[in-house]
Amino acid sequence: MKIIYHCFGGSHSSVTAAAIHLGLLSTDRLPTAEELMKVPYFDKTPGEIYGVIRYMGQTQDGHQVYVLGKKNLGRRMNRIFIGLAELLGMEREIVVTNTMPYVNILMMLGGYLSRRWGLTFPGRAILIWGTRLAFPALADLVRQTRLKTIPGGGENEDYPSGDHGGASPPGCGPRVSGHN
């Protein structure tokens, strides 16, 4: 199964959630600054990486975990992925999780200073402070996401059962999708 955590920049909340999922960060206490900075991609992502799905690692169960910076695509990103997976008959092979609702003002400010302005000195301190504040909620989000990888454990967010205007049974031959 593929698990994709996505946020604005793909550098902070999604990466933290993915690290929790992979066991790189323990959930029995708040991480230290050093532990956060050791997480791959944490506050190290250049701006042009938007839209690139990056591999973070594999869980013990064999699930592959990815992160994505999607800028302001918001909740639409979940629906796009789920809709496409449904077209391909693979909706049970992916779990997509939007971590943006768990980003607090400190993470936004610190991330902006660090990534956008290159001011890592005050930026990272503020960012790490904010990430530690958000950590329990992110850990809970990861717990919910893990449940979705268990058969019968739940559905993707924004994946209501039934018709939502898009999918149809797989056809024979290439499917062509024009998009803007």
Binding site: G51, K70, L73, R76, R175, V176, S177, N180
Partner: peptide
Amino acid sequence: NQVYTLGLGRLIDVG
């Protein structure tokens, strides 16, 4: 072949 459309708003390159 089945034909679909998809809207990405303003962030077309990222999407």
